[in-house]
Structures are given as structure tokens and as C-alpha cells.
Nucleic acid binder design. Structure first.
Lengths: 214, 214
DNA sequence: TATACTATGTGATTGTGAGAACAAGCACAT
DNA sequence: ATGTGCTTGTTCTCACAATCACATAGTATA
């Protein structure tokens, strides 16, 4: 049954995360000129079971043909349309230093996520462009967020300056913060914070290896 | 009950991940000179329930005093000791380009994760040091992995070159791969792959906002 | 020393996601 | 037209994680 038309169905977070894998996978199939795929093809590529793929897709609709599989172009298109109907993925980056710049440049190779503005307190950074993305003074923060109805912000500034900026982001309407600084930050109910750091991920993998295996 | 001394207890993955948050949180408490914390203090900082904190900690031992809370120094020290007893978190980075270099430099500010070697197929990169980390030719891959008993590798090379390198990593004994390239990769049973990309994370947060809220 | 109070540690319960198995449906051959 | 084979969509079961609630054990105070 197609639940797509209902408002806000309860889709598991794990499903949403895997959906990104599937999309990625489907795009490479499309690029390679593959016409049809089975749930098991996708599953193997993404390292999950085929029943998981089918169940995940079933949250969004019926896309396949029994006995035959999924039409790559069609599935790709339908999922894309569905996601585009949610509006553009607009985001801002706080901090136009090394890390911020790297993220902005990296984003230009990715057509999904739009970084529409960067912010820096440093005078010699503001007013310029980084790969087409304007760098504003932090004074403009609230204005830009409200004008563009931004809900997600990426924070790439030194740890000690994080909390005041977070407070401003929250009161300006930001609902989800991706922090590249490792220290814990305080936000009110309803705002989500995730941390993002390669070395933390390595630490986690390390713990996992040590506490799960044999 | 302290399960630390038993071999490979079944600790939930979610607990392991949160443990990193707690540690991070405890270090800032320590730095701020806070002597004692309650499970609820940690919980609020990390965005979880206090009972979750207590249960998570209980997998590793009894660290608190009823009616009083946790001694910050003591808890910090005990958890650190426990993790150090697992041995050093040694890892290697494949690819000494922009991304690889950034990670290596970043790792120098983090005392937990040791990057002990980098690899690159490019002749003008090999033989040099990046912030103290030697850059080897890819020929040395298997030797270094085996000599140092490396289990985790971070891949920061162009997508098209990923799969052959993965195959070599796996047969050299790598158990966990963190890929910074977005394309799916194939590994045998028992080897885990995670993907890591800021913009994918933004995409995920976006989906989460749209499919979870109100 | 006794009593009230406070916060931990844990057993029990609820909830949620993964995996397996099966029913349903389409294509194609005969 | 009908049957066969194949893969999807879905139900059901199991396992695991989050949450609750309470017993436990310490502190503080009079």
C-alpha cells in the first residue's frame, strides 16, 4: 500500500538512512545503463538483506513488478520526485575556515545539498565568495535563515565559540544542527544535534570490533 | 555487576556510540573543574534520558555513589583505563591527497586515535611525512598492516580506485573499513564497511526533519 | 543514632526494527 | 487460454534496545 499520500508516516530512521544508499546505488546502475534490478542486487551492493530493501521501499510505494524486478529509471525518478517534493535541501555553514571551505567545495560535486550561505566573524573572509557561496558576517545570520527558511545548519567553528552561535541558530528557527566540534552543546527540546568527526567514527569502529567480535 | 572482566560481553552498539558522547562530556566537566555529576547532568548534555546513561554505564561497572552521583575524575579515569586496556586505536589512511592530509592533521589534536601510516600510489607523495605520519607506497600496504596488526582502515581515494584497494585490505586482515567515497563497495562476510560524508549526513538530517516532525 | 532524602543500579515491560517465510501478481512460454 | 516460474509486497516472529519503576544504598541532618 502506498503510504506516500498520507501525512508524516512513521518511517524508521534506519530506513531513511538506507534510502540514501539505495539512491546512490541506483544512480550508478543508471549511469552504467542497467535497465532492471532485483531487490537482491541492491541489497548485495548495500550490504543488507533483500527483504529489508523491499520493506524499506514499501514505505514509499509500490515500485516493482513481481517476477521481474524494478525498472532502474522509473524507481530512480519516482524516489527523486518524492524527495524533491519536500523542497530543496538548503543549508548554511557557520565558519569559513579550512573545514568550512572544504565542505563548501565538496558540496559543489553533490547536486542534492545546497549550501546557500556561509558565515564568519572574521572581516577578511566576509564579502567574498567560496566557490559561488557568499560569505556573510555573523550579523546577517538571523536574516538569511529567516529569508530562506533554513532548517539545518552545519557548524565548523572553534569549540569555544560554539554555544553562543547555537543559541542564535535555535532562536532563528534552526531545527537540526550538525556540529563538527566535539564538545557537547545545549539545545531546547525539539532541536536535534548530531556530531560529525572522522576520528570519533574510528573510535566507534574500534569499540565495536572489541566488544562485538567472537 | 562489573562485566568488564568477562570476555566479550554483549554490549549494545547504541551504548558504545553513546559512550563516546559521555566521555566527551566528562572531559569538559573535568576541564571545567566540576567534581561531581549526576546521571541526569550527563543525560541532558547528551540529549538522552538519565536512565539510559545509568544503564549504559552499568554494562561496564558500578561507578557512582547512590544519593550522591558520579565523581568526575574517577569515572573519567576508569573509563579511560578500560578503553586503553583494549590497546591503542591504530589505524591507517589510504590516500594522501587533500582529504587524507586533512584527516591526518586533524588526528594530531586527538589523543585517542593513532594514524600510524598513510599510503598513496603517487610517487611524489610517498617517502614524505605528513605531520609526523609516514606516507608509504601502496606496495607496502600488506606489510604495514600485518606488522602492526591493523584492523581498521580509512579510505580517502578517488571512487574508481576503491574496490581493488578494498580487496587488498580485506585479504591483509582489515576488519572494518571507513570509506569516504560514496559508492557502494563489496566485502566478504565479517568485514564491516561504514560510509562517511558530511553532505550525506545533511541529506539524512533533511529526510529526518521531513518524515519525523509533527 | 535514627530518620528523611536523594540518586544509583537493575529487573520487568514495552516498543521497534530485522529477518524469514509466505501469499500475491506479473510475464512468458506452451 | 492456461500453467509455470520468478520476484515482489506483506505478515509474522524474534531479538534487541529504550523506558519505566522500584529496590538499594549511600548522604545529610537533627
Amino acid at each position: 500500500m502506498n503510504r506516500m499520500n498520507f501525512i508524516k508516516p512513521a518511517i524508521p530512521e534506519t530506513t531513511l538512512r538506507r534510502l540514501l544508499y539505495y539512491m546512490r546505488c541506483l544512480r550508478t546502475y543508471k549511469k552504467d545503463g542497467v535497465k532492471t534490478v532485483l531487490s537482491d542486487n541492491i541489497a548485495k551492493k548495500c550490504g543488507v538483506k533483500s527483504s529489508v530493501v523491499r520493506k524499506d521501499l514499501s514505505y514509499f510505494g509500490e515500485f516493482g513488478v513481481r517476477g521481474k524486478g524494478y525498472d532502474v529509471d522509473e524507481l530512480c525518478h519516482k524516489l527523486d520526485t518524492m524527495l524533491n517534493s519536500l523542497g530543496p535541501i538548503n543549508t548554511i555553514v557557520i565558519g569559513a575556515g579550512k573545514l568550512g571551505t572544504a565542505i563548501i567545495n565538496h558540496s559543489k560535486e553533490n547536486f542534492k545539498t545546497n549550501i546557500i550561505a556561509a558565515f564568519d566573524k572574521n572581516r577578511d573572509k566576509t564579502g567574498k565568495n567560496i566557490n559561488g557561496v557568499p560569505v556573510y558576517s555573523l550579523d546577517k545570520l538571523e536574516d538569511i535563515i529567516k529569508e530562506n527558511n533554513i532548517k539545518i545548519a552545519v557548524i565548523a567553528i572553534p569549540p569555544c565559540e560554539v554555544q553562543p552561535v547555537v543559541d542564535r541558530l535555535v532562536s532563528a528557527g534552526i531545527k537540526s544542527i550538525l556540529s563538527l566540534a566535539l564538545l557537547p552543546i545545549n539545545v531546547p527540546e525539539g532541536v536535534e544535534v548530531s556530531f560529525f568527526d572522522v576520528l570519533s567514527e574510528v573510535e566507534y569502529l574500534f569499540l565495536k570490533l572489541n566488544f562485538k567480535e567472537s
